[in-house]
Design a protein around this nucleic acid. Structure first.
Lengths: 249, 249
DNA sequence: TAGTGAACTTGACCTGGATCAAGATGGCAT
DNA sequence: ATGCCATCTTGATCCAGGTCAAGTTCACTA
């Protein structure tokens, strides 16, 4: 076995990633995307003290279920999640996809019960923020209160944009708009924006956009044939963004 | 002219309604629906001091326009509003209808610009809450902070319910669901829940639900013929709520 | 009280995208 | 490696709801 002092820091990094329970916000790669953004050092440590870093969730595993009693908001740490609303008759609507740095569960605040089911799309991990403690803390830390208002407001804007898509747009506009918005979100996180792995299935995309899965499949094929994207299973490359931009008008 | 001491209090009431600038939260009929709910007397007076009570807006008049710089949230005091999102190509989506007690403009918080245009559906009045002062105040008053979190969260839930409707439901389910939700909201406000005036046009309903106006018109006729509603222009009576409930499943 | 334009209704027809059907592909457990 | 089940693709057909057209009713203004 190699015994080289030079690689020990590296190994420590790996160990930290594998045992995320020990990580702190100020050592987190997501800091600039995450809730604590803009907090002073002392405040950050206080916030840090209430965060519960969870074990990873496996693909398909639920972070919480709809109607379950609400206690925490969650920040996605790695992987991705979807939130699904289930109607009385069993029909489901995926109301959002969440990437690292995104905050999940905000729609539960006003009722004390989660309003949707949050499911991991791949093996994922989260930071849990017990809401009662977060509330107290945001009362004491103005920058944190502001961050929470901003996050809630941002999610409102997202949802209203999606309402516009579902209410007014054609299938192609919905799909291309969705791809472009995913691309922008990857970009914000410093991932490649023009070539990435779709974190969700065609089934999930179709449901989210109010389309049939066959329609999504056909449109992806068509975009490929037109040379606007390159699409191999879940790997997708956006080849002609200006043209794609036009398609979602 | 009548000079009768007995009617003077009544006349004063009328004068107050016509000059709403003098009204205070604790004399407001909407108190139990509105933001200050649960505030202690002192806190209520503090909040009261930052509220700007506006002159009435006429039907069709904009409270604020999309992209305009954000400074205040508004509580509907009387009348009703719609918020409209306009896409680059001019297509519009009505993202919400707002009744007395509802809070408008929350989606603007995170950007500093209003994300939609808010338009009065009839002559209406609002209370303006300058956001910077509201932020400071909610930092000092826990119950107010909590109220704001709740309001933001509630609007999220509303939007997600609407996403479910637009994504998964048939035209009839959308329309009946819409009528039932309006009825519930009137009920919450102490108005008649089974017989009321629709505050918005068929055009607005159709747009909001992602339908054609002809479809809305036809479905209302059908519901009338089936004896489930009685519909004379904007006046609508819900005659068979159990059956209607089934129709929106 | 008549005139006007917007809102609404109703009918006829059409189409975008759903549904149905039948493979092809891929990821994973054994 | 192999078998299996979920996911995905592609084609054929269908239909809910959109579009077009032609009035009718309503709310306002003059």
């Amino acid at each position: 076995m190699i015994q080289n002092a030079a690689i020990i820091p590296l190994l420590k990094d790996v160990a930290r990633q594998e045992h995320q329970l020990q990580l702190t916000c100020d050592s987190c790669a997501l800091y600039s995307l995450c809730l604590p953004l803009g907090l002073h050092r002392n405040d950050l440590e206080t916030l840090d003290s209430i965060i519960k870093r969870s074990k990873p969730l496996a693909r398909g595993q639920a972070l919480y279920e709809m109607a379950e009693s609400f206690d925490s908001l969650y920040v996605v740490r790695s992987g991705a999640f979807k939130t699904t609303l289930t109607a009385a008759d069993g029909r489901e609507q995926i109301t959002g996809f969440y990437l690292p740095g995104d905050l999940i569960g905000m729609d539960a605040i006003h009722t004390g019960h989660y309003q949707a089911t949050a499911t991991a799309l791949s093996s994922s991990s989260v930071c849990g923020l017990p809401y009662d403690r977060l509330q107290d803390l945001s009362q004491a830390i103005p920058a944190l209160q502001q961050q929470i208002y901003n996050r809630l407001s941002k999610e409102l804007t997202n949802d209203k944009q999606l309402l516009m898509a579902l209410g007014q747009k054609t299938a192609m506009e919905k799909l291309v708009g969705f791809l472009m918005s995913l691309s922008r979100r990857f970009d914000e996180r410093g991932y490649a924006a023009d070539r990435f792995q779709l974190p969700m299935s065609r089934i999930d995309i179709a449901n989210h956009l109010g389309l049939a899965i066959e329609t999504v499949s056909r449109l992806l094929t068509q975009l490929s044939n037109d040379g606007l994207i390159d699409c191999q299973g879940k790997m997708i490359a956006l080849l002609d963004k200006p043209q794609l931009k036009k398609l979602c008008s």
